[in-house]
Design a protein around this nucleic acid. Structure first.
Lengths: 176, 176
DNA sequence: TCGAAGTGTTCCTTTTAACGAACGTTCTAT
DNA sequence: ATAGAACGTTCGTTAAAAGGAACACTTCGA
């Protein structure tokens, strides 16, 4: 199970601060927290409050999870990490995912509901994806749309792959 | 400036717990925290520790930022909220954003670097978007790709719009 | 009908994160 | 050289988060 790495936060915090050329005192003052507090956090000790993390994230201009999440570690089960970004509640329903595959990963996906279509956009790396009988090689920036009501797969070679994935659940009776 | 909405965390926490059909006592026990603690958090009071948030996020199986980020609240300046999802570091560079526009919003976007292309996928709502002289009406599930090195715009009528947005910075000298 | 086991809440206590002042350094300018 | 101002650290105090027990309540089975 994942455990909280106290040191990670400190490293990220300091790295982000130095990237911006700020001193510890400056950042603490701007965020409205005591510099003793920030000092302790950067050293990897301590267990900051949500309020403290929030203030720091706002000042550093990072989306919050960035401060804590170990960037380089794949959290997924079998070399694949999937994160739900958003989920439409209208018709047709649209699910948006962020996905990351480790090198030499082969992921089979079961058919979705009839009429469902899937779109991929590769952000970085290389990826081979599509229906079993119609695979395509993607490079960063490339997009691919295919019918997702058939078995399909995602495969990486010797590189990581990061991509956006949207599934549109077009119902059978929908107007064209 | 963004301020910490204490109530938001509580709502999300409770919503996620109920989605899974768990009781407050169960979740608290599984996460290894006192149920009095969890109870207070769900009520919107309190300022949890990173350790506490972490344990809850792991148990609920959500990527951490989900607990805190206000889903339904437009934090953006002028009715537009934009969130960076990911940023490729290879060539061509790819930026992925999640974006949400309030009703009756008109957003002009300046031209990006030459050769840049932008792709939209509407998750929910209605949106009119594209280059100034070639606007398109999008419905959920629709996608649109256009050259982003010209002025373009996004406009909503009387509905919200949630979408994915990717910008591909294809350099001039890139191979086809 | 009456426990027994669950729910979520409200206290009080203990622990500890955040604060603020003092500290030793380093660097600059007078 | 030397006073000044910055840096990041360490320390004792204070505010508050987390823990734990009791609480009133509902649900279920004997």
């Amino acid at each position: 199970m994942d455990t909280l790495s106290l040191g990670t936060l400190g490293q990220h915090l300091q790295a982000l601060r130095l990237e911006r050329g700020w001193s510890l005192s400056q950042l603490a003052a701007a965020a409205g927290i005591a510099k003793s507090n920030l000092s302790r956090l950067e050293q990897g000790n301590g267990n900051p409050t949500l309020d403290t993390i929030w203030r720091l994230a706002v000042q550093l201009g990072v989306p919050f999870g960035t401060l804590v999440a170990p960037i380089s570690v794949p959290l997924g089960e079998h070399g694949v990490e999937v994160r739900l970004i958003d989920q439409g509640k209208e018709s047709p329903q649209v699910d948006a995912y962020w996905m990351r595959c480790a090198p030499h990963t082969l992921r089979h996906a079961e058919p979705h509901t009839p009429g469902a279509r899937e779109s991929l956009t590769l952000i970085s790396g290389r990826l081979e994806a599509g229906p079993e009988d119609d695979l395509h090689e993607l490079r960063p920036g490339d997009s691919l749309t295919f019918a997702a009501d058939r078995p399909h797969r995602y495969r990486t070679d010797n590189a990581w792959a990061t991509l956006l994935l949207t599934i549109v659940y077009t119902h059978e009776g929908d107007a064209p």
